[in-house]
Design a protein around this nucleic acid. Structure first.
Length: 434
RNA sequence: GCAGGGGUUCCCGAGUGGCCAAAGGGAUCAGACUGUAAAUCUGACGCGAAAGCUUCGGUGGUUCGAAUCCACCCCCCUGCACCA
């Protein structure tokens, strides 16, 4: 068996990754031997987003330290919906939809952990396996009996739903905790899994499982929660104007993903390096010190973007993201060769083909149709402020009715390409029909 | 079922007959400044290039005119009752 890195918890602590743990510090002792731990991911979409990245990477950290990770995909819990800290009851998804998502998440989660490294190889589990045939009476007698409703309604995670005027909670969602608790007890029985990790919102569900494992199997198991990722300016982490940042390249291109991290605020970037990369804390401290020393533009964002993009999208995804970023944000667009431009499209820069005849289409319309803006208003605003650049040339409102003049062959790069920039950061590649 | 409270533009939340596309805040977008930051300032923020058009749970109605009044309906919340 591979040696166990007993300093793991200390490292997690230095990274700020420990929010709360059960067992009064016994966990450190517990982890001096190779253990099995799990973290659950519920299928609420066909891909995870970066909100799940912290627990996902923490599983990886545990595995690197010699422990055996189980990634649990919630085929069952996904059918119910976790009420923890949610302000509203959510609508149920159909079993077919959820099982489709389960398959996708299984694949996605599997990219992060090693399934072929001997004794601590990872396992992917689905809690539907031990719940779908469970009989209601057995459930109520064997599981329900161990839970006190008095206790459950006092949980902080459901308080909003219990106390707040205007919202309620269904029995279905209220029961969620029992299902998750069962998972822990079950994994303890099946795999001798003795640790569950999760976001800080999972504390109530995790302690529920700790108690159930003890009551059902007299098992001594532990829970550890990770902090919720917050931003210094108080806005929600993981969202941009174009929506959630997903891990699936089909939903969020490696380029957009890379740009997301590159735009991290100074106030957050060192924390994020500790959360989201495998660079050592010492290395990160050095980066921070060097940035402070130098003043001006920090290096940290670039390092963060590179590290995380490589982690999620691999070397190729990173290379593509960097190629696009370099081409668009530094240097002269006019210097790009035809193959460079072609490559941008292959790399995932949003692109579309211009129609041969513009008909009566306005320029605003064309850009909206290409997906550069949700409606005409922002484009109009940008046109009025010289914030629309076609191949580096500002285009004003007066061209709105005359897209043919803007997208004429003699103004195209290499005879057929137009790079349109809207605002500071939104780019789109148009090509003339050949 | 009864009683009470409530459903407003992405979110929170004002508005209770015309001056309302609807205060204020947040989020978001654009500009200036910068480092593809932050802070700050400016502008935008239902749709539309514009003229104009469509909104305030739904449907009808009253009115010259309704988010605002009336009727019915749907949904949510709180309490009570019924059931057991």
């Amino acid at each position: 068996m591979a040696g166990v890195d007993a300093t793991l918890l200390k490292d997690l602590d230095r990274r700020g990754l420990i929010n709360q743990a059960t067992g009064d510090g016994e966990l450190t002792q517990h982890l001096t031997e190779s253990r099995t731990l799990y973290c659950g991911f519920d299928p609420t979409a066909d891909s995870l987003h970066i909100g799940s990245l912290v627990p996902l990477l923490t599983l990886k950290r545990f595995q690197a330290a010699g422990h055996k990770p189980i990634a649990l995909v919630g085929g069952a819990t996904g059918l119910i919906g976790d009420p923890s800290f949610k302000t509203q009851e959510r609508s149920l998804n159909t079993p077919e939809v959820v099982s489709g998502w389960v398959e996708k998440l299984k694949r996605q989660v599997s990219q992060f952990i090693d399934f072929d490294c001997g004794d601590n190889s990872a396992v992917v589990a689905n809690n539907l396996d031990w719940t779908q045939d469970l009989n209601v009476l057995d459930f109520l007698r064997d599981v329900g009996k161990h839970f006190s409703v008095n206790n459950m309604i006092n949980k902080e995670s459901v308080k909003q739903r219990i106390q707040r005027e205007g919202e309620g909670i269904s029995f279905t969602e209220f029961s969620y905790m029992l299902l998750q608790s069962m998972d822990f007890a079950e994994l303890f029985k099946r795999y001798n899994c003795t640790l569950q990790i999760g976001g800080s919102d999972q504390w109530g569900n995790i302690t529920g499982g700790v108690d159930l494992a003890r009551r059902q199997h007299r098992g001594k198991v532990y829970g550890l929660t990770l902090p919720l990722v917050t931003k210094a300016d108080g806005t929600k982490f993981g969202k941009t104007e174009s929506g959630t940042i997903w891990l699936d390249a089909n939903r969020t291109s490696p380029y957009a993903f890379y740009q997301f991290w590159l735009n991290t605020a100074d106030a957050d970037v060192y924390k994020f390096l500790r959360y989201f990369t495998f660079l050592s804390v010492d290395e990160i401290d050095e980066i921070e010190a060097a940035d402070r020393e130098r003043a001006g533009k920090p290096e940290a964002q670039g390092i963060l973007a590179r590290e995380v993009t490589r982690l999620i999208h691999g070397d190729e995804g990173l290379a593509a993201a960097e190629r696009i970023s370099r081409a668009l944000f530094s240097g002269d667009i006019a210097d790009l060769s035809e193959s460079d431009l072609e490559q941008l499209r292959l790399d995932g820069l949003p692109s579309s083909v211009l129609p041969a005849d513009f008909g009566g289409q306005s320029l605003i319309n064309l850009l909206v149709d290409a997906g550069m803006a949700p409606s005409g208003k922002p484009v109009k605003d940008a046109l009025g402020r010289n914030a629309v650049l076609v191949n580096g040339q500002a285009v004003g409102m007066e061209f709105n009715a005359d897209p043919a003049a803007v997208f004429s062959a003699d103004r195209a790069l290499c005879g057929r390409f137009f790079i349109v920039r809207l605002g500071k950061k939104k780019y789109h590649l148009f090509t003339l029909e050949s």
